[in-house]
């Protein structure tokens, strides 16, 4: 029995990644190895992974979406994972990439929040501070060649101002009125830009929700590592709220009309 899931369900010659399973196309080396060659293991590839996170600015604040799947290679391993996480009273952090690294980040931020609350100095961490902290942490870890293998979206609302920004395993940061990580950057980002750019101060909460739901639906149709169960976070002057998990309406009746490839004979 081969215990390494990245080897499962693959053609025998899979040096060629015919199914484009990137970013988890690498097979582990199962042969003999020198026990002491590297005493310390570092993250060289993500193992249990989350896919895209989407976020947009709208009239009252910021809205984010992520599905509940954590994949183990191509196996849909954990189907009730929260990838949107509240930090303090003003911020939500959404993660794609390695889920164990994300849980470590949650732990670090929890420690940080406790320290800040304990200080009782009248200061509270907002999204700007959390993003700066995360970008310094991610850049420091990449500089030690020991990265936290995530792309993070940090959204928030504090002192009447919206905030939305990105940071990844290299420490690269940027902000824009629409952001998407992972496959969402290829598939959902163009849709989000078309719907949002230049209309950030007009879009209502209902419209923002519809924009994100439509994009999540497209991702579910096209991203093989996604799932039809997701959550939406809204951050506005009313504070942070992360929804319960939702299902999307999808239609598959068109599938039987597809011709030209697959199993059908005519």
């Amino acid at each position: 029995m081969d215990h390494f899931p990245t080897n499962w369900g693959r053609p025998r010659n899979d040096a060629f990644d015919a199914y484009a399973t990137y970013p988890i196309h690498q097979r582990p080396y199962n042969g003999p190895k020198d026990t002491f060659a590297d005493g310390v293991q570092r993250t060289q590839q993500p193992i249990v992974t989350g896919t895209s996170v989407l976020a947009i600015k709208y009239k009252d604040g910021v809205m984010m979406a992520a599905d509940n799947l954590a994949s183990y290679g191509s196996l849909a391993r954990f189907k009730d994972v929260q990838r949107l996480h509240q930090v303090g009273n003003y911020t939500v952090i959404g993660a794609g990439g390695d889920m164990s690294d994300f849980q470590y980040i949650q732990y670090i931020l929890e420690e940080l929040s406790i320290d800040e609350i304990s200080a009782q100095d009248g200061h509270e961490l907002g999204p700007i501070e959390i993003h700066e902290y995360m970008s310094q942490l991610m850049y420091a870890r990449r500089s030690k060649m020991n990265p936290l293998w995530n792309s993070l979206l940090i959204g928030g609302f504090k002192d009447g101002k919206r905030f939305l920004s990105y940071v990844d395993l290299l420490g690269t940061t940027y902000s824009a009125s629409t952001l998407a990580t992972g496959y969402g950057a290829f598939i959902a980002q163009p849709l989000l830009r078309k719907a949002v750019e230049g209309r950030e101060d007009v879009i209502t909460e209902e419209e923002a929700r519809k924009i994100l739901e439509d994009s999540m639906r497209v991702l579910f149709y096209r991203d093989a590592r996604s799932m039809n169960k997701f959550q939406i976070a809204t951050i506005s002057s009313a504070g942070v709220s992360i929804s319960d998990s939702m299902q999307l309406e999808t239609a598959w009746s068109f599938a039987e009309n597809i011709r030209g490839y697959g199993a059908q004979t005519q």
Partner: peptide, 20 residues
């Protein structure tokens, strides 16, 4: 995230984390 091209996947390779 960069889309991998099929050429670079055609042969097995030692992969290291690229910090740049």
């Amino acid at each position: 995230m960069i889309m991998p091209d099929m050429d670079s996947l055609a042969h097995p390779q030692e992969r290291r984390f690229n910090p740049y």
